[in-house]
């Protein structure tokens, strides 16, 4: 009797696993949302495949990219926080050294025209070289990374699956990482369903009021459904740029001192702290910065933050702030934040 039960159970197990095998979803590459502009990245030059994505994901989570094999990309870019580093104004990298800027989210990278707070990198493929070489992040020479991958028991096989042969070279390494990052599309928030007129897009009166305030007072910089115009602006968070000149670090021009990339606001409720230096812990404190006299003056302060009466910032009533925060919360994309394909 027991034997029959056991056999039956085993059979059921086998069958169910077979069934699972059959039902395995076919791999779907990055989906381009209808409410987004055209991507900046040329996907046809690096089509996302299941094996390429899997290789890129393994690399993203592997500390082998760092000098002492202790720091992975994912250490400062955590999936449930839209690939930012929650609670860290700036992140600690190798040897517990701190960087000087707040880790940016890794989402909707296909649409970015430049990368990092100073826009120093033009193409998604070149992005990983920056944290790998940064002496306070991974502090590794990329040619050494490739050598480590060549001598690794698994990677040459994974490169073969992704690219047809075991050769590990710069382009393949970087394009695999791009394939992982290309998949990190966040466009499934309640706001997205609202603008695309899909089910699940109900917005409350308060949230809609917040959207109206947003469009009037914030959307000049946080433009389009990417919620950034991808420009570089000085938003008055600090007025002493001696430690970090922002955009001027790469352009060398004094008119760029103190300017930083306008961040997207997608998943903003999940990506605290805020600003290039992680100065603010809450969305309330961000709005208080703009509305409550927190904006610090300096020669490159953005003109949009100078009101006609000479005051600095963006006037917002208490009611408007509450409405804005209600609206900003509709930009949280739980499907993306919990997507098992992207988590470790």
């Amino acid at each position: 009797m027991n034997k029959i039960l056991l056999t039956g159970a085993l059979l059921a197990l086998l069958l169910s696993s077979c069934e699972k095998e059959d039902k395995k979803e076919p791999f779907v590459g990055p989906q381009l949302p209808s409410n987004f502009p055209q991507p900046a990245y040329d996907l046809s030059a690096n089509p996302v495949t299941e094996a390429g994505f899997a290789l890129g994901k393994k690399l993203f989570y592997d500390p082998i990219l760092s000098r002492d094999n202790t720091i992975a990309c994912a250490d400062c870019h955590i999936s449930f926080a839209a690939f930012t580093h929650p609670d860290h104004p700036t992140s600690h990298g190798i040897d517990n050294l701190f960087g000087k800027r707040n880790a940016l989210p890794v989402q909707n990278m296909l649409w970015r025209t430049s990368f990092f707070w100073d826009g120093g990198v033009p193409n998604l493929d070149l992005v990983p070289l920056n944290p790998i070489q940064n002496p306070v992040e991974m502090d590794e020479s990329p040619d050494v990374v490739l050598e480590k991958l060549r001598n690794h028991p698994e990677y040459p096989g994974l490169f073969r699956e992704a690219f047809g042969s075991e050769e590990v070279n710069t382009a393949r390494f970087l394009q695999a990482m791009s394939q992982f990052m290309a998949m990190l599309v966040s466009a499934d928030s309640r706001y997205d369903h609202y603008v695309r007129k899909e089910p699940g897009g109900e917005m409350s009166v308060e949230e809609l009021a917040g959207l109206a305030v947003f469009q009037q007072k914030c959307a000049a910089c946080h433009a389009t459904d990417l919620f950034t115009d991808q420009s570089f602006r000085n938003n008055g968070v600090i007025d002493d740029f001696s430690l970090d000149k922002g955009r001027a670090e790469v352009s060398t021009f004094s008119e760029d001192i103190g300017k930083f990339a306008v961040p997207s606001l997608r998943n903003v409720a999940a990506t605290a702290p805020y600003m290039h230096n992680g100065k603010f812990k809450t969305l309330e404190s961000v709005l208080d910065h703009y509305a409550g006299g927190g904006v610090k003056d300096s020669p490159t302060l953005d003109p949009l933050l100078r009101q006609s009466d000479g005051t600095l910032g963006i006037p917002l009533s208490t009611a408007e702030k509450a409405q804005l925060i209600a609206f900003l919360n509709t930009l949280t994309d739980e499907t993306f934040l919990r997507d098992a394909r992207f988590a470790q």
Partner: peptide, 26 residues
């Protein structure tokens, strides 16, 4: 600003050019 696939040989940022490439200011 060319694609990474065209940066081979002396221009390979993770090869011959690894000491002659700014990754932070590409």
């Amino acid at each position: 600003v060319s694609p990474v696939s065209e940066r081979t040989g002396d221009l390979d940022p993770a090869g011959a050019a690894s000491g002659m490439y700014w990754s932070w200011n590409a």
